[in-house]
Design a protein around this nucleic acid. Structure first.
Lengths: 112, 112
DNA sequence: ATTTTATATGAGGATATTATCATATGTTCA
DNA sequence: TGAACATATGATAATATCCTCATATAAAAT
């Protein structure tokens, strides 16, 4: 694989690890503080086994880290810059939908 | 689907549309100027049919827009903020790999 | 020692994504 | 008109991702 292609692949892999609704919910939940798997099972309503796998995806990609205390595993966000990515995504979507509303309103008015 | 879940789904869909090496290559190519499909087939070395589908994914998700001139279709980036996302992704990866190098060097030194 | 608790993992099928090939569509030009 | 060109689309097969269920692991409590 050519050098640049490898770079694109690595970036795409990181984006892929973000690109799932449950994983976005996890990240939002971990924005302010670390949390254990059990806590997230309850608060996010994701089934234990699935949650564990999503956490593992986020850890493999370097977005989360974990520490263990007795039997409990706590996950936390490794690099807060990930939230810059997510906030920008939100802004892009908000702009887009605002344009959509604008268009809708003006199309409706132009009807007759 | 609950309101918040829908929001996560919409964000995840946008991230998914970014999460492919060819599509990242397309976006980088379109960073400075619009380009036609034919031009990108040549410069990016992606096969015509596949490229057309990747462009369609990016257009559906609102990242690209297109205009037609005779038979030629030109694509361009609709909201430059998408590059904020990509730059931040790069920065996160660079930090991560620098940490990796650092660790490697110190592990090597601590060997004996 | 056995049971309970917290988390991770493996197997299976269901669904989604991708690549490729062939073909369709629409436009220009001879 | 019909050949050539630029792009899009459909079908299919290959691959990847996801969900769920069952079970594994490992520490704690009884």
């Amino acid at each position: 694989m050519a050098g640049e292609e490898l770079v694109f692949k690595v970036k795409a892999d990181l984006l892929k690890s973000l690109a799932h609704p449950s994983r976005l919910a996890i990240l939002e939940y971990l924005k302010k503080k670390e949390a254990s798997v059990g806590e997230m099972v309850i608060k996010l309503g994701i089934e234990q086994s699935g949650l564990s796998k999503h956490l593992s995806v986020l850890k493999q990609s370097g977005i989360l880290s974990s520490r263990q205390e007795k039997v409990t595993v706590f996950y936390s966000v490794r690099d807060k810059d990930i939230f810059v990515v997510l906030r920008t995504i939100s802004e892009i979507l908000m702009k887009k939908f605002r344009e959509g509303e604008y268009l809708l309103q003006h199309l409706a008015r132009a009807k007759p």
